[in-house]
């Protein structure tokens, strides 16, 4: 690990003032410190933002504002979150372990890096870590990597569960930074790799996440489901956050599907959603919608299973919500 300086900020404004190239913000450190140990992240300076006064969950009119430094555990057990956004509580609870969630923050969870094995090993090439060095995952181990929206440069997935639920809930990410304040609607925070896989998000250097704001819960039934070969403490192979609102006439009035584990960003299955809204809520329609979405999938040999897995998951999840 490279030696680094450490300071603790008392306010968001101060944290941003402390920012200079080579600086990184430190949340719970459950991802960043691991990456520093591995030599993947080599900040010269850490500004600790985990104890900023951004650690409350408040309802503001019909919306709920979650501070960036709220711990994952506190978010998941909050009575208001559980009552109004059970999908979010569920998504957070399926992530990591109790110990990690106790330390991890909301902002840190959103900005955690991919778990691609090559990315985490500085002795191997990786375009995301060292732009231009190549992407060995495409010919090598990509079992857990992307089938949608990937590029020749990178097929990584974003590992967060919480981000998938936030994409379905259309949460807003509040950001402050050297360039002023901004609001980024989810799933717009994370980007697809394209030619610049080194950029996970649309954030600019020095941008600090201050809060995540949840709009009123969508109409309809919601659910979060995560698929993994180990029953707990494992990242998703694929996950889904879904909202389905079926009218008395059996017609789909509203539908949102966000997928995790399939792309470089939480993936809103817009084609499937479009295909369903205004149509019947039947298994057949769900299947057609899932297939419409997955037409654009570009699986690799070892992750081709994610195509039937995602299709099944969409169909079965919507069937569950419809009944």
């Amino acid at each position: 690990m490279k030696p680094f300086d450490y300071t603790r900020a008392d306010s968001a404004a101060q944290a941003v003032r402390e920012y200079a190239p080579g600086t990184m913000y430190l949340g719970g450190g459950t991802n960043l410190v691991d990456l520093m140990r591995l030599g993947v992240a080599e900040p010269e300076r850490l500004v600790d933002v985990s104890r900023l006064p951004l650690d409350t969950i408040e309802s503001v009119r019909d919306r709920v504002r979650v501070g960036a430094a709220v711990r994952n555990t506190d978010l998941a057990v909050d009575p208001m979150i559980r009552a109004r956004y059970p999908m979010l509580a569920r998504a957070v609870l399926t992530g990591a372990s109790g110990q990690v969630r106790n330390v991890a923050t909301v902002a840190g969870n959103l900005l955690q890096r991919t778990r691609c094995a090559y990315f985490q090993d500085v002795t191997r090439p990786c375009n995301k870590r060292r732009p231009g060095s190549g992407c060995p995952a495409i010919a090598g181990d990509h079992t857990n990597l992307a089938i949608l929206g990937s590029s020749e440069a990178c097929v990584a997935t974003h590992p967060s569960d919480m981000a998938v639920a936030l994409a379905a809930l259309e949460a807003e990410v509040h950001v402050t930074g050297p360039g002023g304040d901004r609001i980024i609607p989810m799933p717009g925070l994370h980007r697809l790799p394209g030619e610049e896989p080194e950029r996970d998000t649309v954030l600019e250097p020095g941008d600090l996440i201050t809060a995540v704001e949840l709009p009123p819960p969508p109409a309809g039934a919601t659910v979060y489901r995560k698929v993994r070969e180990r029953a707990s403490f494992a990242f998703a192979l694929v996950s889904i956050a879904a909202v389905l609102d079926v009218g008395d006439d059996g017609v789909v009035a509203g539908c949102r599907i966000a997928l995790g584990g399939v792309a470089h960003a939480p993936w809103r299955a817009e084609r499937a959603e479009q295909a369903l809204i205004g149509g019947p809520a039947t298994g057949e329609a769900f299947l057609r919608a899932a297939e419409a979405e997955l037409e654009q999938a570009r699986p690799l040999p070892r992750n081709a299973y994610k195509v039937p897995l995602t299709r099944n998951l969409i169909v079965s999840t919507l069937e569950g919500l419809a009944s």
Binding site: R115, Y118, Q120, P136, A139, G140, R230, A231, S232
Partner: peptide, 28 residues
């Protein structure tokens, strides 16, 4: 779940930590 991958391209092993090399958890 347990499996260490051999890196055909570069040699050596992949998934060299407990977040990637899964052993059963209590829930299993």
């Amino acid at each position: 779940m347990e499996e260490t991958l051999t890196d055909e391209e570069f040699g050596g092993f992949l998934r060299r930590d407990l977040a990637q090399y899964h052993v059963p958890a209590c829930a299993d």
